[in-house]
């Protein structure tokens, strides 16, 4: 069987742009890697986005990045983790690029059904107006020191070093506060999801 013909990203014009001088020697290891990892990667993407066509689109993006950057991975044992991160980042980028107006619960349920993909519970589907509000309230309930680092990170986009400088504390202290705060938000989200708010 031909791995090339079976991969949805191969016919893309962008693919030929990306690889004008593609040779079998270059293509084969990568295409076989992608073929082998396609299903796990699509499952990772499916944790974030709802529709199969979006999963296809994002997987295509990931495939192009793999082709372009596979040489930067020095450690063969790190390839799987690197692929995971590529897929996750591509899915998050895709979500951020969409109209991020959170959906109402009925809207997500309807589109979820329409997509025929009940059984998955991707981030896109979980992001309802009510849950966004609940997460904001949970942030407001955090101790001020934890809330402050999360706000500086998310609202102002400061990295941990910059937050440490701003607050006059160590980077380690920033990360301790951030981890505790985020873990508490996650606990609250899990409680909300188990109660199916």
């Amino acid at each position: 069987m031909s791995a090339i013909l079976d991969l949805p990203w191969i016919p893309s014009p962008r693919m030929t742009e990306a690889l004008p001088v593609a040779t079998p020697a270059l293509q084969d290891p990568v295409t076989s890697l992608l073929e082998r990892e396609a299903e796990p990667l699509r499952r990772v993407i499916g944790r974030y986005v709802r529709h199969e066509h979006a999963v296809d689109e994002i997987f295509q993006e990931v495939s192009l990045k793999v082709l372009r950057r596979i040489d930067t991975v020095r450690d063969p044992l790190a390839v799987r983790g690197w692929l995971f991160q590529l897929a996750r980042n591509a899915a998050l980028d895709w979500l951020r690029s969409q109209d991020r107006r959170p959906a109402s619960p009925s809207e997500t349920l309807d589109t979820h059904r329409a997509a025929g993909d009940l059984g998955r519970n991707p981030v896109e589907h979980l992001m309802t107006t009510e849950r966004v509000e609940a997460i904001r309230r949970a942030l407001d309930d955090l101790p001020a020191s934890q809330r402050e680092v999360i706000r500086l990170r998310i609202d102002e986009g400061l990295d941990h070093e910059a937050i440490a400088l701003r607050l006059g504390i160590s980077r380690q202290a920033v990360e301790v506060r951030l981890c505790r705060g985020r873990a508490a938000l996650k606990d609250r989200l899990d409680a909300i999801l188990s109660g199916d708010l």
């Binding site: 992001m127 997460i135 998310i154 938000l185």
Partner: peptide, 11 residues
């Protein structure tokens, strides 16, 4: 993914 959902929501 749930941690990421929190990041998206807070953004």
């Amino acid at each position: 993914a749930h941690h990421d959902l929190i990041s998206l929501a807070l953004a």
